[in-house]
Computed example of a mutant assay.
Amino acid sequence: MTTPSALERPADVPFVRKLGARLVLIPAVVLSLLPPRRIRRVLNVLRRGAAPATATQAKNARDAVCAVSLRCAGPRGCLPRSLGAALLCRLGGTWPTWCTGARVVPPFTAHAWIEADGHPIDEGVPDDYFTRLMAVTPVGRHPR
């Protein structure tokens, strides 16, 4: 027996932001196919010259990516979703902290997310639920 589920996708995303999200979606998916060290190398280059993203800017970018892609809105879309949100923030001149890591409590589950002001954006879990294994912070800032 299966349990039906529905994905909640943000509905109030402005058209211009959706257009930007569509623009970064293919590069985000391509990036998600690369090995972690290459992802980090590309993101380190892209973050240059960007101001740190606020929580609102990061949430707006994440919402836009989820609004245009069912894959990114789904439970297994964390890597392209986080990459897309980071790239969309970069289009606006900002950069969130992009993170990958794992759940702190068993069973092991890998995850990718974005943070702003030291807090995960729209993950629905406490701040210490995941532990970072890799982070790409805005230039001039270091991971906590």
Rank of each mutant, 00 (worst) to 15 (best):
P52M: 06
R71G: 12
L25D: 05
G20H: 00
R41K: 10
Q57P: 05
A6E: 06
V16M: 09
I121D: 01
L43A: 15
V30S: 15
P35W: 04
G77W: 03
C89M: 08
C66H: 01
R38A: 15
R62T: 15
G101C: 04
L33F: 14
P138I: 08
A53Q: 15
V16W: 03
A112C: 11
L7D: 09
P52V: 13
T2A: 13
T54G: 03
R144T: 14
P75Q: 13
T97R: 07
P126W: 03
P126G: 05
L79H: 06
L70W: 14
A135P: 01
R9A: 04
P52K: 03
A64H: 08
P143V: 09
R38H: 00
G140Q: 03
P107G: 11
P14D: 11
R9V: 08
H142I: 07
H142F: 11
L25S: 07
G92C: 07
R141S: 15
P10Y: 00
E8N: 06
S82H: 13
M1K: 02
P14V: 05
R37H: 08
N60I: 00
K59M: 14
K59F: 10
C72Y: 02
T54C: 07
A51D: 13
A135N: 01
I114E: 05
L46H: 01
P14Q: 01
C89D: 02
R141Y: 14
A112M: 06
P120N: 14
D117C: 07
P138C: 14
T109N: 04
Y129P: 10
I114L: 07
A135D: 02
A50H: 11
L33H: 09
